[in-house]
């Protein structure tokens, strides 16, 4: 077994919103080996972005609060680090690609300024060396270096996302967190960006957390998958467990049922009816109870425990008889 680069254990994050507490992340655990990619899948509001911001300790200062849990990066606890330690990790050892390329770049600085700054914050390289680095990384993401002195508004959305990716990769991070890197892009550009990230992953042996709600992207990119619902991981397993296995969380089944299938013309899509529970008042028992087709009496009263089979975990009462978890 290779070394663990990231271990999240029982992470709980709350946001303060007025008088109410928003329970954004409710005890998730993920562990990631070096060079592997884990996909976090779930609908909007499931807590995916909150999880990734927690890893960099970038939650909004006043409103976001990590209630419990640990996040260990290469064995060291991120939540206990002082400002300078976490700062020196951000952008150097852990980088993040943000969701919206349109707003993720500062409009008043050129691409070169924004890329070279990422280098300068973590090294004492000379101007020439930084220049070379910037040019190299731009070449890597397919942007001509004679555009490096342009401002973000002079680029298209797809190119901006490449710049954002370039910025995340310029220091060759050990862990890359990509928060819906392709959501804001059209399909042709999506494919290009995914190819790019795959190649880079191979070239740099970067570990990756890929946040998405696109199951197609997950099957292309990931080694392991975490399905998130209402701040919990309801199912976790290898790509094989999730896409081929015979036991699934009803929510996972629902997610796959919501994908259009070209071969299956006659049938309608099967959307999961209902909405995520209100994160300020999560229900007693299973969080998925109101939308679950298999809901039982105990789902309304008892919070389920994980069914565990090797690396495959399912948080559902349906499988509890088979094997008891934690």
């Amino acid at each position: 077994m290779s070394e663990k680069i990231l271990e999240i254990d029982n992470l709980t994050v709350r946001y303060k919103s007025g008088n109410a507490d928003v329970h954004a992340v409710n005890g998730i655990s993920i562990s990631l080996e070096k060079g592997k990619t884990v996909g976090i899948v779930g609908e909007t509001g499931a807590g995916k972005t909150t999880t990734s911001l927690s890893i960099m300790n970038l939650l909004p200062e006043r409103t976001g609060r990590i209630d419990s849990g640990t996040i260990k990066f290469k064995g060291k606890e991120i939540l206990d680090m002082d400002y300078e330690t976490i700062r020196s990790i951000r952008g150097k050892e852990i980088s993040m690609i943000f969701q919206d390329p349109m707003t993720s770049l500062n409009p008043i600085f050129t691409v070169h300024e924004q890329l070279s700054e990422a280098v300068r914050m973590h090294s004492n390289l000379s101007k020439e060396d930084i220049d070379t680095k910037v040019k190299n990384v731009l070449n890597m993401v397919g942007i001509s270096e004679n555009r490096m002195n342009n401002f973000p508004h002079e680029f298209s959305g797809g190119m901006k996302q490449r710049v954002v990716i370039a910025m995340a990769l310029i220091n060759e991070p050990e862990l890359l967190i990509a928060d819906e890197p392709t959501t804001a892009l059209d399909v042709t550009i999506q494919a290009q960006v995914l190819d790019l990230m795959k190649n880079l992953k191979r070239a740099l042996n970067t570990s990756m957390i890929l946040i998405t709600h696109d199951l197609g992207v997950v099957s292309e990119m990931c080694d392991e998958v975490a399905i998130m619902y209402a701040g919990q991981i309801v199912e976790y397993g290898s790509l094989r467990d999730i896409y081929k296995g015979d036991k699934h969380h009803p929510y996972t089944v629902g997610l796959f049922g919501s994908i259009p299938n070209i071969k299956d013309k006659s049938k309608r899509l099967k959307p999961i009816s209902g909405l995520l529970p209100d994160p300020t008042k999560l229900p007693v028992g299973c969080y998925f109870q109101d939308r679950c087709p298999h809901v039982m009496d105990k789902c309304r009263t008892i919070h389920p425990k994980y069914y565990i089979n090797d690396n495959h975990k399912i948080l559902c009462h349906l499988f509890e008889e088979d094997k008891h978890g934690q």
């Binding site: 970038l58 700062r87 951000r90 952008g91 980088s95 914050m121």
Partner: peptide, 26 residues
């Protein structure tokens, strides 16, 4: 509150530089 300030933090920019360079000019 803008996304690009979060981006700057995520790439490890010092808080002082974020305030006086990235935020103030905007």
């Amino acid at each position: 509150r803008q996304d690009y300030i979060r981006t700057a933090r995520a790439k490890g920019v010092y808080e002082k530089i974020i305030v006086f360079k990235h935020s103030l000019r905007n």
